[in-house]
Design a binder for these strands. Sequence first.
DNA 1: TATATAATTTAGACAAATCTAAAAATATGT
DNA 2: ACATATTTTTAGATTTGTCTAAATTATATA
Lengths: 219, 219
Amino acid sequence: MTHSEENYIKAIFHLGSQGEEVISTNAVAERMETKPSSVTDMMKKLSEKGLVHYKRYQGVSLTALGTKTALSIIRKHRLWEVFLVEKLDFTWDEVHEIAEQLEHIESEKLIDKLDELLSFPKFDPHGDPIPGKNGEFIERDNQLLSQIPIGSSAICVGVKDSSAVFLRFLDKNNIALGNKMKIVEKEEFDNSLRIYIDQRELNLSQQIASNLYVKMIKL
Amino acid sequence: MTHSEENYIKAIFHLGSQGEEVISTNAVAERMETKPSSVTDMMKKLSEKGLVHYKRYQGVSLTALGTKTALSIIRKHRLWEVFLVEKLDFTWDEVHEIAEQLEHIESEKLIDKLDELLSFPKFDPHGDPIPGKNGEFIERDNQLLSQIPIGSSAICVGVKDSSAVFLRFLDKNNIALGNKMKIVEKEEFDNSLRIYIDQRELNLSQQIASNLYVKMIKL
DNA sequence: TATATAATTTAGACAAATCTAAAAATATGT
DNA sequence: ACATATTTTTAGATTTGTCTAAATTATATA
């Protein structure tokens, strides 16, 4: 498979897991930052290779083989991210671009050995689950901070948006995975939240809160 | 730079350091396993980018910039090889193909951090010197086993041919980098050598002996 | 040194991945 | 349900890296 094919497969997988089953040509084009016509061409090719279900004007979805392929690429991406943070001391906002390249390296043995070196991690530095060697994949069932009731306590377990700007904002405010927080109040006007975290009081906009995955805990 | 461009630069560098200064189109084509006409096309492109000196029918050589580029790629290749052997327990006959992919990953920071993780190694698993961050490069001044006088002792420091078959042959005969050996006799008929290594007596063909780099030691 | 041979380049073609512009199919709104 | 808007596809072009076949230049030999 070419890098381009792999990137399309990955895009379709990600679009599929955050909403619809069947993905539109335009959606893929937007995510890949290409033109819809390029997507159509590629869908024909991937369809011939048995990686996607595709009928013209009907959108696209991954076949079982396509899903397996996507999971393998995502596994590689996330394991490399763990490596970069754990072994090379990169920060979580620096690893995506590099992992984007490393995910295309072809060698099953390499990935298995990397997995072992890292002690078989289950999550990447952004809290995203790492698919297993045989395609086992635990979808994250956590809630967004914006969705949990006022008064509850929760642990920060992941980020929905893993762009460098957002991650650096979190760093600046000492919000890290594993941190405990308590939601004190929701401001009616703009839906911002007042929380306690790390012995401090903090105000988070609705946009921030809807990009933080948390796991509720009983007091 | 594209992977292909990088591979051409590397090929020219290697051809240049094992003989002539000016490299012929055919030599590049043979090494790259492409047709001479493809080489001509690429030389024009690399020439326009200032990476090679090229005049038609006159062969090709690297510019200062081309050499710097080549050293950077080789540095990456060899550091990744060390990583694969030291951190992931690959054997020295398995690493070349994977490093061939990894050498194209773009991130200076990644390579610097990798260098640090590996404690700034000076040689790769085959005994080849690793160029420094700023292009410093110690050419190996060692001799081939086939070139040293009978009766002398030497330490094995590298391999000229690093193909998997040759490396596995060495493994099978317990010849490893760092091993001491003494040349006992040279057979006139086929130039094979009788040596002592690792408390054993061993017979090495001329072909083997001319692919092993050694450093002579005084007794 | 003339000519044969070998090396190299040019010309033209192709596949992959992309694009633009136009056409076709589908979806939407009243 | 029909006209319009949107989405998607097709057709044809472009770029990169490659190829084959033919032409050109260099070299080697007689």
